[in-house]
Amino acid sequence: MRRPIAIALVLLSAIPLVVAVAGLPAHGDPSAPVHTHVSAHYIERGAEEAGATNLVTGVLLNYRGLDAAGEVTVIFTALIAVLAILLGTGTTPESTASSRGASDRRGADRESTVAPVSPIVSFVVRLLAPFIALYAAYVILHGHVTPGGGFQGGAILAGLFIALAMVLGTRAMQPVARTALAPWLQGAAVLSFVVVGTVGAFLTGFFLGFPAEPPLHLVRELLIIALEVGIAIGGAAVLATIFLHMEAS
């Protein structure tokens, strides 16, 4: 009954979209507006102005640094909201476990955090873990030269953490997640933007400004790497913490 209405609504929105799309510049046309305005400047001068061979990193952290600062604030806020929803009602996971009612369809087996893992999966994850970590470090630290950067490397680190948590059980990861350092790791992305922004303010007079003149342009590369490392650690910690708390809920 709802289905015809839904299909009609979807068609109603799809037809104008198709008509609009047909009027766009041809796919891959080098004279389209997207290639002739600010992008042309980025491609022509970006590598020397922003101090990053990888223009995506240069645009993300240098030209549009405030944009990236807002973005890391978004993921940090998401972490705070997730924790508020899962922990903020005064009921800890332990106390809700006993009060779960008839709606709980799986009962007691939810208590075990270690799902039975095939020995092959366990072995492969353990075997590959150091290499994944090495790859993540390469992606993070080399992100201004080759494809990659803080977000990608952070997501790979978080994926590694989640894979290890699945193989070893979330209990085994608790010592890592409960250290006194954990809040600092979760806030690392936002904090690195504050620190680098302030350093930039001292060097250039603008918040998140990067010095472009010859004597200081090596500092600029260091600042970009510091931002990348901060974003990666912060992003990985936030995603891993969200996973651990959803898993433990």
């Binding site: 990888n54 992606v139 494809p147 990659g148 977000f151 990608q152 997501a155 995603l239 996973f243 959803m246």
Partner: peptide, 22 residues
Amino acid sequence: PDVAMAEAAVGAGITTVLFLVA
């Protein structure tokens, strides 16, 4: 390639894991 890497790690990896946990 930057976006592809992010999508592979975040879209195909983390998002799916979160859905599976949910």
